[in-house]
């Protein structure tokens, strides 16, 4: 069974059709890439999956259940975590706290439990701390854990955002242009990080990216969007040679 299915997703903004009946199914455990020129509707699709927008038409099925109408925080609690194209960190919180907030959706202790330091809160806090330390090590930010998130370098901020998303223990991770603004050595690190994440944490990754090499390199399958329509969906090699894709997108760059 696919972990995520999109059935006939359309999205309109004031009469403008940003997405036009998109179908795709993401299989459990794969790295799935979505590419397409600017304005193709990639980020819109992410926003629909994560519950920020409700699609005008169509269904989002996650683990067999319809999540169309779930608010964003509920979607997160179902196990879908994401990063953002323009990095949305909690700037004036420490690196450590950014990750610990990421654990919010998988912990339960409430106001009074936290205020009074009840056993549930203590137990969850120590779990959260341990998990945060593990993730800090994973993304190589352990030594900087007390610094404000906005004092990190750009590439580090991207990695912190990934760590925060992973703190949610997701089964599906959405990465919105994770390599944007990175230099080539940072990109190499990113690729190995993404691979490591998939292997160690057994999750499915859906990513939007502009860097062709990176996408071709790590994705198992790729969907190509153009003007809100899905014009191809296949393995990297086949997509690379697809006539429609070459004409509408790759052709421009090649």
């Amino acid at each position: 069974m696919p972990i995520l299915e999109l059935k006939g997703i359309s999205q309109e903004f004031g009469g403008l059709r940003a997405l036009d009946s998109i179908d795709m199914a993401i299989e459990t455990g794969e790295i799935f890439g979505i590419i397409g020129p600017n304005g193709a509707g990639k980020t819109t699709l992410f926003n629909i999956i994560t519950g920020i927008y409700e699609p005008t038409q169509g269904e989002v099925i996650f683990n067999g259940g319809n999540i169309n109408r779930l608010p964003a925080y509920q979607v997160a609690r179902q196990g879908i975590a994401r990063t953002y194209q323009n990095i949305r960190l909690f700037k004036k919180l420490s690196v450590l706290d950014n990750i610990r907030v990421g654990r919010y959706g998988v912990t339960k202790n409430g106001i009074f439990s936290g205020m009074l330091g009840l056993p549930l809160a203590r137990r969850e806090e120590s779990q959260t701390m341990a998990e945060a330390m593990r993730l800090l090590e994973l993304v190589g930010l352990y030594d900087r854990r007390w610094e404000y998130a906005d004092s990190l370098a750009y590439g580090e901020q991207r990695r912190l955002e990934i760590a925060r998303a992973l703190a949610l223990n997701p089964t599906l991770l959405l990465l919105d242009e994770p390599a944007a603004g990175m230099n080539s050595s940072e990109k190499v690190e990113l690729v190995s990080l993404i691979r490591r994440i998939r292997e160690e944490m057994e999750l499915t990754i859906l990513l939007v990216e502009h860097d062709m090499n990176l996408v071709m390199n790590i994705c198992d399958r790729i969907a190509v969007l153009d003007y809100g329509r899905r014009i191809a969906l296949d393995t990297p090699i086949r997509v690379k040679n697809d006539a429609a894709v070459i004409q509408s997108y790759l052709g421009v760059e090649a």
């Binding site: 925080y73 949305r88 706290d97 907030v101 998988v106 998303a165 949610l168």
Partner: peptide, 30 residues
């Protein structure tokens, strides 16, 4: 109680809302 609250799960979520509501939502914060 304030200090305890602010260093707890809920307290961190309060700060997260101040910093970025959308990102807080995607961490599961209502």
């Amino acid at each position: 109680l304030n200090a305890r609250l602010l260093s707890s799960r809920t307290g961190r979520a309060f700060y997260a809302i101040r910093e970025d509501e959308i990102a807080a939502e995607s961490c599961g914060v209502n």
